[in-house]
Amino acid sequence: MSTSSTQTPDLIPPEALEQVGTVVATRTGAVDQREWQRWAVAVGDHNPLWFDADHARAHGYDDVIAPPLYVQYAVLGVTRLDELRPDGSSGASSGNLAFPAAPKRMAGGESTTFHAPCYHRDEITMERRVESIVQKQGRSGAFVLVTWRTTYTNPRAEWVAEATTSMIARP
Protein backbone atom coordinates (compact mmCIF):
# COMPACT_ATOMS: atom_id res chain seq x y z
CA MET A 1 0.00 0.00 0.00
CA SER A 2 1.34 3.36 -1.02
CA THR A 3 2.44 5.86 1.59
CA SER A 4 2.40 8.75 -0.86
CA SER A 5 -1.30 8.36 -1.59
CA THR A 6 -3.29 10.30 0.97
CA GLN A 7 -6.75 8.82 0.53
CA THR A 8 -6.26 5.20 -0.50
CA PRO A 9 -9.30 3.39 0.86
CA ASP A 10 -8.53 0.28 2.86
CA LEU A 11 -10.47 -2.47 1.11
CA ILE A 12 -9.15 -5.43 3.12
CA PRO A 13 -10.81 -6.10 6.49
CA PRO A 14 -8.54 -7.54 9.24
CA GLU A 15 -10.67 -10.73 9.41
CA ALA A 16 -9.75 -11.46 5.80
CA LEU A 17 -6.04 -10.81 6.38
CA GLU A 18 -6.04 -13.28 9.26
CA GLN A 19 -6.84 -16.06 6.78
CA VAL A 20 -3.62 -15.60 4.79
CA GLY A 21 -1.57 -18.79 5.05
CA THR A 22 -4.40 -20.86 6.47
CA VAL A 23 -6.30 -23.74 4.90
CA VAL A 24 -9.71 -22.26 4.07
CA ALA A 25 -11.29 -25.26 2.38
CA THR A 26 -10.77 -29.01 2.36
CA ARG A 27 -13.20 -31.09 0.36
CA THR A 28 -13.49 -34.51 -1.16
CA GLY A 29 -15.71 -35.14 -4.15
CA ALA A 30 -16.21 -37.86 -6.71
CA VAL A 31 -15.30 -37.16 -10.30
CA ASP A 32 -18.35 -38.11 -12.32
CA GLN A 33 -18.34 -38.88 -16.04
CA ARG A 34 -21.78 -37.36 -16.68
CA GLU A 35 -20.83 -34.14 -14.93
CA TRP A 36 -17.53 -33.71 -16.77
CA GLN A 37 -19.33 -34.46 -20.04
CA ARG A 38 -21.88 -31.74 -19.23
CA TRP A 39 -18.95 -29.37 -18.60
CA ALA A 40 -17.25 -30.44 -21.84
CA VAL A 41 -20.32 -29.88 -24.03
CA ALA A 42 -20.86 -26.48 -22.38
CA VAL A 43 -17.34 -25.64 -23.59
CA GLY A 44 -18.09 -27.23 -27.00
CA ASP A 45 -15.17 -29.57 -26.24
CA HIS A 46 -16.06 -32.89 -27.90
CA ASN A 47 -12.61 -34.45 -27.51
CA PRO A 48 -13.20 -38.26 -27.65
CA LEU A 49 -10.82 -38.80 -24.69
CA TRP A 50 -13.63 -37.43 -22.48
CA PHE A 51 -16.42 -39.44 -24.19
CA ASP A 52 -15.23 -42.61 -25.95
CA ALA A 53 -13.65 -45.40 -23.83
CA ASP A 54 -12.28 -47.25 -26.87
CA HIS A 55 -10.60 -44.09 -28.10
CA ALA A 56 -9.16 -43.42 -24.63
CA ARG A 57 -7.84 -47.00 -24.33
CA ALA A 58 -6.25 -46.71 -27.77
CA HIS A 59 -4.36 -43.71 -26.41
CA GLY A 60 -2.93 -45.37 -23.30
CA TYR A 61 -5.66 -44.71 -20.71
CA ASP A 62 -7.70 -47.29 -18.78
CA ASP A 63 -11.02 -45.61 -19.65
CA VAL A 64 -12.42 -42.18 -20.55
CA ILE A 65 -10.71 -39.40 -18.58
CA ALA A 66 -11.93 -36.08 -17.24
CA PRO A 67 -10.84 -32.92 -19.09
CA PRO A 68 -7.87 -31.58 -17.05
CA LEU A 69 -9.51 -28.21 -16.32
CA TYR A 70 -12.71 -29.89 -15.12
CA VAL A 71 -11.15 -31.38 -11.98
CA GLN A 72 -11.51 -28.15 -9.96
CA TYR A 73 -15.31 -28.45 -10.21
CA ALA A 74 -15.56 -32.09 -9.05
CA VAL A 75 -15.10 -31.13 -5.41
CA LEU A 76 -17.52 -28.19 -5.23
CA GLY A 77 -19.95 -28.31 -2.34
CA VAL A 78 -23.43 -26.82 -2.26
CA THR A 79 -24.72 -23.57 -0.81
CA ARG A 80 -28.25 -22.89 0.41
CA LEU A 81 -29.96 -20.32 -1.82
CA ASP A 82 -30.62 -18.09 1.21
CA GLU A 83 -26.89 -18.11 1.97
CA LEU A 84 -25.69 -16.93 -1.44
CA ARG A 85 -24.13 -13.49 -1.70
CA PRO A 86 -26.41 -10.78 -3.15
CA ASP A 87 -24.65 -11.21 -6.50
CA GLY A 88 -25.65 -14.89 -6.53
CA SER A 89 -22.13 -16.22 -6.01
CA SER A 90 -21.19 -18.79 -3.39
CA GLY A 91 -18.10 -18.37 -1.22
CA ALA A 92 -18.12 -21.93 0.06
CA SER A 93 -14.95 -23.16 -1.60
CA SER A 94 -12.86 -20.04 -1.09
CA GLY A 95 -13.11 -19.53 2.64
CA ASN A 96 -16.03 -17.08 2.56
CA LEU A 97 -13.63 -14.15 2.44
CA ALA A 98 -15.68 -10.97 2.73
CA PHE A 99 -14.70 -7.61 1.27
CA PRO A 100 -17.67 -5.35 2.05
CA ALA A 101 -15.85 -2.34 0.57
CA ALA A 102 -15.06 -4.25 -2.65
CA PRO A 103 -18.12 -6.33 -3.52
CA LYS A 104 -17.59 -6.65 -7.29
CA ARG A 105 -15.80 -9.92 -7.83
CA MET A 106 -14.29 -11.48 -10.92
CA ALA A 107 -11.92 -14.34 -11.61
CA GLY A 108 -8.30 -13.22 -11.92
CA GLY A 109 -6.38 -16.10 -13.38
CA GLU A 110 -5.35 -19.70 -12.96
CA SER A 111 -2.12 -21.62 -13.27
CA THR A 112 -2.23 -25.40 -12.93
CA THR A 113 0.24 -28.26 -13.22
CA PHE A 114 -1.37 -31.62 -14.06
CA HIS A 115 0.22 -34.80 -12.73
CA ALA A 116 -2.25 -37.65 -13.29
CA PRO A 117 -5.53 -38.19 -15.16
CA CYS A 118 -8.89 -38.48 -13.37
CA TYR A 119 -11.26 -41.37 -14.00
CA HIS A 120 -14.97 -41.81 -13.33
CA ARG A 121 -15.69 -42.18 -9.59
CA ASP A 122 -12.20 -41.14 -8.46
CA GLU A 123 -12.52 -39.47 -5.05
CA ILE A 124 -10.53 -36.27 -5.36
CA THR A 125 -9.40 -34.43 -2.25
CA MET A 126 -8.81 -30.71 -2.53
CA GLU A 127 -6.95 -28.56 -0.01
CA ARG A 128 -6.98 -24.80 -0.54
CA ARG A 129 -4.90 -22.18 1.26
CA VAL A 130 -5.01 -18.42 0.99
CA GLU A 131 -1.58 -17.55 -0.35
CA SER A 132 -1.94 -13.76 -0.30
CA ILE A 133 -4.40 -10.88 -0.10
CA VAL A 134 -3.06 -7.57 -1.38
CA GLN A 135 -4.53 -4.22 -2.30
CA LYS A 136 -3.37 -2.81 -5.61
CA GLN A 137 -3.90 0.36 -7.58
CA GLY A 138 -5.08 -0.14 -11.17
CA ARG A 139 -6.01 2.27 -13.94
CA SER A 140 -9.62 2.27 -12.76
CA GLY A 141 -8.82 2.55 -9.05
CA ALA A 142 -7.97 0.38 -6.08
CA PHE A 143 -8.75 -3.34 -6.05
CA VAL A 144 -8.06 -6.42 -3.95
CA LEU A 145 -6.14 -9.37 -5.39
CA VAL A 146 -6.64 -12.68 -3.58
CA THR A 147 -4.45 -15.65 -4.48
CA TRP A 148 -5.17 -19.26 -3.44
CA ARG A 149 -2.93 -22.31 -3.67
CA THR A 150 -4.84 -25.55 -4.16
CA THR A 151 -3.76 -29.18 -4.32
CA TYR A 152 -5.78 -32.14 -5.64
CA THR A 153 -4.98 -35.77 -4.83
CA ASN A 154 -6.69 -39.01 -5.89
CA PRO A 155 -7.52 -42.28 -4.03
CA ARG A 156 -4.25 -43.81 -5.26
CA ALA A 157 -2.57 -41.04 -3.22
CA GLU A 158 -1.18 -39.53 -6.39
CA TRP A 159 -0.96 -35.83 -7.03
CA VAL A 160 -3.62 -35.05 -9.60
CA ALA A 161 -2.99 -31.33 -9.92
CA GLU A 162 -1.64 -28.25 -8.16
CA ALA A 163 -3.19 -24.90 -8.92
CA THR A 164 -2.73 -21.23 -8.15
CA THR A 165 -5.89 -19.21 -8.72
CA SER A 166 -6.74 -15.58 -8.10
CA MET A 167 -9.75 -13.34 -7.72
CA ILE A 168 -10.13 -9.58 -8.12
CA ALA A 169 -12.58 -7.61 -5.95
CA ARG A 170 -13.41 -3.99 -6.77
CA PRO A 171 -15.38 -1.29 -4.93
Binding site: W39, A42, V43, D45, P48, H55, A58, G108, S111
Partner: peptide, 30 residues
Amino acid sequence: HGPLQSALLARAVTDWIGGHGRLVSFSAQN
Protein backbone atom coordinates in the same frame (compact mmCIF):
# COMPACT_ATOMS: atom_id res chain seq x y z
CA HIS B 1 -17.14 -16.42 -17.67
CA GLY B 2 -13.36 -16.11 -17.34
CA PRO B 3 -13.22 -19.88 -16.67
CA LEU B 4 -15.20 -20.53 -19.89
CA GLN B 5 -12.63 -18.50 -21.83
CA SER B 6 -9.78 -20.40 -20.18
CA ALA B 7 -11.54 -23.71 -20.93
CA LEU B 8 -11.81 -22.65 -24.59
CA LEU B 9 -8.11 -21.72 -24.60
CA ALA B 10 -7.23 -25.15 -23.15
CA ARG B 11 -9.56 -26.80 -25.70
CA ALA B 12 -7.58 -25.19 -28.54
CA VAL B 13 -4.45 -26.79 -27.04
CA THR B 14 -5.89 -30.28 -26.37
CA ASP B 15 -7.46 -30.33 -29.86
CA TRP B 16 -4.05 -29.46 -31.36
CA ILE B 17 -1.96 -32.01 -29.40
CA GLY B 18 -4.25 -34.99 -30.19
CA GLY B 19 -5.05 -38.07 -28.14
CA HIS B 20 -1.42 -39.03 -27.48
CA GLY B 21 -0.50 -35.51 -26.38
CA ARG B 22 -0.72 -34.50 -22.72
CA LEU B 23 -1.36 -31.16 -21.08
CA VAL B 24 1.42 -30.78 -18.49
CA SER B 25 0.67 -27.27 -17.27
CA PHE B 26 -1.65 -24.44 -18.23
CA SER B 27 -2.09 -20.87 -17.09
CA ALA B 28 -4.36 -18.01 -18.13
CA GLN B 29 -5.08 -14.50 -16.84
CA ASN B 30 -8.33 -12.57 -17.23
